[in-house]
Design a protein around this nucleic acid. Structure first.
Length: 285
DNA sequence: GGTTTCGCCTGCGGGC
DNA sequence: TGCCCGCAGGCGAAAC
């Protein structure tokens, strides 16, 4: 389940190895992996052929390779996507394979097929160039131009649960279920609290914790909770050993010792400490 | 128009 | 043993 740190690890790996290389062959093994490229698989492969990669970019959980015609190959890893360098893997879930002019292969492997590739033009949004499909995505907390106080202001106006807002990529990007739970645990805030009910300093604290926890995870090569996430060499990160909330149902809170709870939320799970992060009182009609 | 829910996918593990 | 079900969850369309 790649979130910002995992995607950034992949981007860095790609940046070091594919920048300056030309694409000499592309094969789409599963059409679903390019479903968001509206012109279809044949168009994608034809346009990529002979293109040179000029650099890499990322915003939130989206990453892209910039190409020498000014367009971008946009990659979303979804839940289980992997960008692998090296020989083409013998793998049931190989979705796309590309060959580069130095002989290495760039493979997209994706078990659950939520991810994919697409080609798009670049557009300038708020002074930053991003691919068109990424234009609606807010800056992430590790973006040098991330405006924390502006996000706090947006959150103050949201009549919606704070965790829901942390997961909304148009409010702040890069945060998924794992890092949302970690940031809320660090800030001692229950995710069911309404965003508008929290003070500006508390909202700022939550965003700062989100940035910190993602920076920590990045420093450890990312989280690999279910081992589906790997870097470009197929290796997992180590941050899952450092998680304080996610996946710790029934275990003692590392801060106060109370037994951690798990609750259903948005068709997934939320992990929290019932003592440090008390649930808000039930609203009555 | 803001907010919430649902469907898309596959593999795994638990229960029967 | 084998089947069914629930779960994992990012994203965008659809519903509310």
């Amino acid at each position: 389940m790649p979130e910002l740190p995992e995607v950034e690890v992949v981007r860095r790996g790609l940046d070091a190895h594919v920048t300056g290389k030309a694409i000499t062959a592309v094969r789409v093994h599963h059409p679903r992996a390019v479903r968001r490229h509206e012109a279809g698989p044949a168009d994608l492969t034809a346009r990529l052929l002979g293109m040179r990669i000029t650099g890499t970019g990322r915003r939130g959980k989206y990453l892209w390779l910039t190409l020498d015609d000014g367009s971008a190959l946009v990659v979303h890893l979804g839940m289980s996507g992997q960008m692998l360098l090296g020989p083409i893997p013998k793998e049931d879930h190989l979705r796309i394979a590309a060959l580069l002019d130095d002989g290495t292969a760039l493979s997209f492997v994706d078990q659950r097929t939520f991810g994919g590739w697409l080609l798009a033009d670049m557009v300038t949004v708020d002074g930053t160039d991003v691919p068109v499909p990424v234009a609606h995505v807010a800056r992430d907390p590790l973006d040098p131009r991330f405006d924390r106080d502006a996000v706090v202001k947006v959150l103050r106006g949201k009549h919606s649960e704070i965790k829901r807002q942390l997961l909304d990529q148009t409010v702040v990007s890069g945060i998924g279920n794992i890092y949302a739970d970690e940031a809320l645990w660090r800030a001692k805030v229950n995710g069911a609290r309404l965003a508008e009910s929290l003070t500006k300093p508390k909202l700022a604290e939550i965003l700062d914790h989100a940035a910190d926890v993602m920076r920590d995870a990045l420093g450890q090569g990312g989280t690999s909770f279910d081992s589906l996430y790997v870097n470009v060499n197929g290796e997992s990160g180590y941050f899952d050993r450092s998680l304080d909330a996610y996946g710790r149902e029934g275990e003692p809170c590392r801060r106060c010792g109370a037994i951690m709870r798990r609750e259903k939320f948005m068709n997934r799970s939320s992990f929290y400490c019932p003592r440090c992060q008390p649930r808000p009182r039930v609203r009555r009609a």
